[in-house]
Every structure is written in C-alpha cells, then in structure tokens.
Nucleic acid binder design. Structure first.
Length: 530
RNA sequence: GCGGGCGUAGUUCAAUGGUAGAACGUCAGCCUUCCAAGCUGAAUAUGCCGGUUCGAUCCCGGUCGCCCGCUCCA
C-alpha cells in the first residue's frame, strides 16, 4: 500500500520523533523540533556519517585509507565570504508574477522582444497594436521559446503579420532593464492582455541578522545557507595545521538556513536544516576518479544505514539545473530517495558535485589570500579542485523514518518502524514479565549493565503485549524479557521486532548479542574486515 | 508568493448558534508467566485575534499553521 505522509507525521508526533517548532504558539512555518527519539535517530545517522568520513574514512583506490579531517565552523562568517561565494548575488532571484494567470517567472528567465516598427508607430501615434483595447508594445517570452512558438503566440494574440517579427531587427531585452511604465504595455508569456506582469521582486534566500546590538547595514551578517563555505574559509588553516596533503577532505556537520519561498513536505524542505558535507580537495586531473569514487562510497553508505530498497536511486543533473559553481566540470550527481510525497518521483538526499576550483578561486580573489596548493613532491602549484558529497542530515532522518515505516495489520500496534539496529533510537527494551521483584530485580541489573554501552529502555508497567507494541512503534529492534526461567537458568527471551519470533539466550550474552547486531551499519566495515 | 482545501483531547475522528463526545494513546491502581486482555479511576481539545449575536467551536473578517496544485529550490 502507499505510505501516507499524514500517518508518518502523526506517528512522529505521537511517539516523540518530530514536533512542529513553537507548537504551543501555533507553530512556525518551515521549522521543526526533534523530540526525544528524533534526536537519537538523527544523532545516530550523524555519528555514522562522521565515523564513515572522519574516524574510519574509506580505503582509497590506491589501497590505503583516504585522509579526511573534521571541522566545526561558525554559522555566521564575515559577510564578504557570502559575496565571494556568490550567495549574496546569486541568492537573490528577482521574480515576476502575472496577475492574470497567477504564474510566476524568474525575471532572468524571461526576455522581452520589441519590434522597432511597433515602437515607431506607437511613438507617432498613427497606428498601434491593441489587445483587448490596451496598447501593447512588447511581448515577453520564456527564454527558451523558439521562433515558431513566438510566431504562434503572436498570431493567437491577433498581431498582424509583418508588424512584429523575430528576424533580427527585434531587440531582446533583459526583463530587469525594463522600466515600470513599460510594464503597462508588456504582454506576459501566458497573459491575454498587456500590463499583467508585476515588477520584479527581490527574493533573498539568506537569513539576515546583525552582529552587535545596533542594527545597521554596516553590521549586517548572514546565517550560512550551506556549511560548505566554512570549509573553504578554513582550507588554509587546516592545511597549515593538520599535516594533510593533497588529496584530502574536510568534513563538517551542522545547521544551515535558507529562507525557502515555500517550505513543504514535513522536514524535507525546511528553513533550518542540517547538512553533512565533505569537501574533497584534489588535483584537477583527478576529479573524475574521485567523483566516481565518492559517488560509489556515498551510495554504499545510504544502503548500509537502511535505504537498501528501490526507493533509492542515482541521477545525474541535466545541464539546465547545474549550480553556479558546477557550470564547468563534471556536474552534479544526486542520490535520491522516493519519499511518499515525491512518489513516483524522487527527492534529493545527497548531491555529489564537482565544484571545480570555483570557491577557492573566488575566496582567493576576494580575500587577497593565496589559497593555491604547492605540491611538496612535484613542486607543482595549482588551485585544487573539489568533489563535494553534500548530504542532508535531516532529510536523511526523514528518509530513514519513511523507509522504516511498515504497516502490519496483524500486530497490535498496526505498524512498526523497521530501523537498522544501529540507527534505532533505542537498541533494546528490558522487560520484566511481571512487576514482581523477582523479575524487576534481574531486569534492572541487566538494564544498568547494558546502558553503559547501548541506548536501552527499562519498562516495567503494563502487560507485556502493550510493551512490545510500544517498542514496535518506536522501532526498537530487540526486547529482552525476564521471566521465571531467568531465575532458574539465567536466560532471557529475545523478541525480534520484525518477526516477533522469540529465542532464549543467556543473560551474560545479551551485550555481545546486541554488539553483533549493531555491526553491519558502518559503511566501511566490509573493507575493514577484508 | 498565487489558487484550492482544512484547523475540535497526544493521535484519529464525532457533534452543535445555547457551555463538546468516542476510540486508541497517556497516567495511577488492581490483575497478568510472552504480544495493546480485563476491571477501576484520572488528566487533556474547539489554533489565535476581532466582528455579528442575548449567546459563536459553528456565521463573517483577519492572522497563524497544515495539506494539495502552481511557482521556487543558488
């Protein structure tokens, strides 16, 4: 059956995974809070990523582990950094609305074509093109409109042939160059009369604040829209302090902020979110090798944490959707997940981008600091290129929840969360079969021993069925039940979340049992074992 | 940002121009030797602001939030 997002959202709230931010004040659009279980899940994913990147980075093509160091840079940086990165300019996409058709266009995606003839005629007042009684002097078309499409549209609007043409005598103007008054005589791409387009509206997708208690333009600062820039800003510091040599990576996990026009789809597109980014610096000649390497590693990671189904797919960006930093080079490939709200389409989970030397070059120019790399062996001096695997931590957590959400009418809870044990917020629940001391005593002892190593729950209240059901709903993979046999022979029942099957194991072996079950999730485990 | 829909307990739903009810969940207790059993009890809701009205959860306006579509997503 199709997974309904409403059920997922309800479970997340009911069991304490994700709450609307500022819930008691009616919430705030685009912001979410992670509850007691949500923060565990998110931290587990975060820690596994950190381990896979920084603690036990993968074995490289040459058979030795690659070099990656960690970083935690400030959310607020010198605003010049965002000018250099292109965010101050590039983040502001002027938008134009059509009052008639309610459509919205990016101003830089519209062009206007004005026929000289029309202009002249209008100027001398002898003849005019009138549409619905209004003077039309110019027509806006999508930037990719073909001549045929433009002809067809003009004909439909009743413009006589010969009055206006696209034979090269008709100038093209960028929308932004048009004056406010000219808008009155401009016909929108889908409108039936002139004058329906609004002035371009500035959209700045970066959050602004002020460093210091007095607000002025002089101390305006931005909340980072991506963690990546903090890495580029520290490239030289890391290089000078960390004994790293090309190629190497700098990894960072942290919050990022984007003033999304329209936050949607639960935590998928929120205004405050968390990223896991690694900038891999390498020689320009090696980018292809490393792009392929990281693409494969990152795919393995997502499969290892539990996104092993057909819901995961890989997609290369088309040329039309490339970022400003990826216009040259190898482009961007996405790892995508089929979320319930995107199905049958997929939503981006991680992008592996070739950022070229865009960022370091830009920061070198703007800061005046030399950021080139001098190879100590070859004495070659060059600007490193960057392969960037950039993943959404919060999106990842959402994908994990969606993937884990399993409807099972046959069990009391009706649903269980099939998390990989390493990701599950609680690894196990310790359940005394009855609330009597002979059960509670050993259960408490087991709980105290296990909690040193695992996130476990001790649950004494209510009957055993209710307790199993509750653990199912929060995705606890194992329940250890203490009963009369435990007192006799020191064994406990292990109840498996997915199969509901039970087996008895010695109480001494419980920790080892859990340790074993946690194992396979590390993305680099297989290679290490080999 | 535009259009449409919606807003009642933690969740899912019901009802009404005359002071809101259920199920599940939660909590407390009893009972329970393995899957939400049974029994008893308890707490908890009309998003917010304003208007109409004798009286508004219901009608109207605004606002906030959620969902769908469009747009956008460097």
């Amino acid at each position: 059956m199709d997974l309904d997002m409403k059920d997922v959202v309800a479970l997340c709230k009911r069991r304490g995974f994700i709450f609307p931010a500022s819930d008691i004040y009616g919430g705030i659009n685009g912001f979410w809070d992670y509850g007691p279980l949500g923060v565990e899940l998110k931290n587990n994913l975060r820690d596994l990523w950190w381990k896979a990147m920084v603690v036990t980075p993968p074995i490289g093509p040459d058979g030795t582990p690659v070099q990656i160091v960690g970083l935690d840079s400030s959310i607020i940086q010198n605003p010049k950094a965002w000018v250099a990165s292109g965010h101050v300019g590039g983040f502001s996409d002027p938008m134009v609305d059509c009052r008639e058709t309610k459509k919205r266009y990016r101003a830089d995606h519209l062009i206007q074509r004005i026929a000289d003839k029309v202009k002249v005629l209008a100027d001398i007042g002898s003849e005019e093109i009138k549409i619905k009684g209004k003077v039309a002097k110019a027509f806006a078309f999508p930037i990719d409109a073909t001549n045929e499409e433009m002809d067809r549209r003009l004909k439909k609007l009743g413009v006589k042939k010969g009055w206006i043409s696209h034979d090269g005598t008709m100038p093209e103007l960028a929308f932004a160059d048009f004056s406010k008054q000219d808008l009155e005589t401009l016909v929108g791409p889908d409108a039936s009369e002139p004058g329906t387009l609004t002035e371009p509206k500035e959209f700045n997708l970066m959050f602004e604040s002020h460093a210091g208690p007095v607000q002025s333009d002089d101390n305006k600062v931005y909340l980072r829209p991506e963690t990546a820039q903090g890495i580029f800003l520290n490239f030289k510091n890391v290089l000078d302090s960390s004994r790293v040599r090309m190629p190497f990576g700098i990894a960072q996990i942290g919050k990022a902020f984007r003033n999304e026009v329209n936050p949607r789809n639960f935590i998928f597109r929120s205004r405050e979110f968390e990223q896991m980014e690694m900038e891999w610096f390498c020689h320009p000649d090696e980018v292809e090798k490393w792009r392929d390497f990281w693409f494969e590693e990152r795919t393995k990671f997502w499969r290892a944490v539990g996104l092993a189904s057909d819901n995961l797919q890989m997609r290369k960006h088309g040329d039309d959707e490339l970022s400003h930093y990826a216009k040259e080079g190898l482009g961007t490939s996405d790892i995508e997940y089929k979320f319930p709200f995107t199905a049958p389409d997929f939503g981006e989970l991680e992008g592996i981008a070739h950022r070229c030397d865009f960022d370091l070059t830009a920061h070198q120019e703007h800061s005046g600091q030399k950021l080139e790399y001098m190879d100590p062996v070859t004495q070659e001096k060059y600007m490193p290129h960057v392969i960037e695997p950039a993943a959404g931590l919060t999106r990842g957590a959402l994908a994990l929840i969606c993937e884990a959400y399993t409807v099972d009418e046959s069990r009391p809870s009706g649903v269980y969360l099939n998390f990989h044990p390493a990701l599950a917020p609680k690894k196990a629940a310790i359940l005394p079969l009855s609330a009597k001391e002979e059960h509670v005593g050993p259960a408490t002892k087991l709980y105290l021993a296990l909690r040193e190593e695992f996130a476990v729950d001790l649950d004494i209240k209510q009957n055993i069925g209710k307790r199993y059901a509750r653990q199912d709903e929060i995705g606890t993979p194992y329940c250890f039940t203490i009963d009369n046999d435990t007192i006799e022979d020191g064994t406990v029942t292990v109840r498996d979340r997915n199969t509901m099957a039970q087996e008895r194991i010695s109480m001494d072996k419980v920790a080892e049992y859990l340790r074993e079950k946690m194992k396979p999730a590390g993305a680099n485990q297989e290679k290490e074992a080999a």
